[in-house]
């Protein structure tokens, strides 16, 4: 449910770092809480975001959540496929359901995020 190669934040985003690129999506817990995703409001590639910024919104039939970036940098790619198939976020939260890719301006930010074990403990605490 919570892959060990990912980092997680308290807003239930995950981050996968490869070189200086961070891929960001929402966790299995987040997609389950939302229910079937019907719309993802994506930012434009090229913009710069800082850790903690809201960069978009994700909507299910019943609710809407803001998307927060846990890392800073330039948005180098957005998952445009979600426009036509937003349910991918539910079906493959850690794969095809990724949301944006960010070129890290401060890679040390990643160190402050939770690993899978810490995130699961956080979820247990929240419940």
């Amino acid at each position: 449910m919570y892959p060990e190669d990912l980092k997680y934040d308290r807003e239930h985003e995950w981050v996968r770092v490869s070189g200086d690129i961070a891929t960001i999506g929402i966790s299995d817990f987040a997609q389950d809480q939302l229910g079937e995703v019907v719309y993802v409001d994506l930012p434009s590639a090229g913009g710069t975001i800082s850790a903690g910024d809201s960069f978009g919104e994700i909507e299910s039939v019943k609710s809407v959540s803001e998307l927060f970036t846990p890392v800073s940098g330039e948005i180098v790619e957005v998952n445009d496929a979600l426009d036509g198939a937003p349910e991918t976020v539910n079906e493959d939260a850690y794969g095809a359901g990724w949301i944006i890719k960010v070129k890290l301006s401060d890679p040390t930010e990643v160190e402050g995020l939770m690993d899978a074990v810490a995130y699961e403990a956080y979820l247990a605490e929240e419940a």
Binding site: G35, S60, K62
Partner: peptide, 9 residues
């Protein structure tokens, strides 16, 4: 109950 399997289905 607000949903079982999912609202859309």
């Amino acid at each position: 109950p607000v949903q079982y399997a999912g609202i859309i289905d």
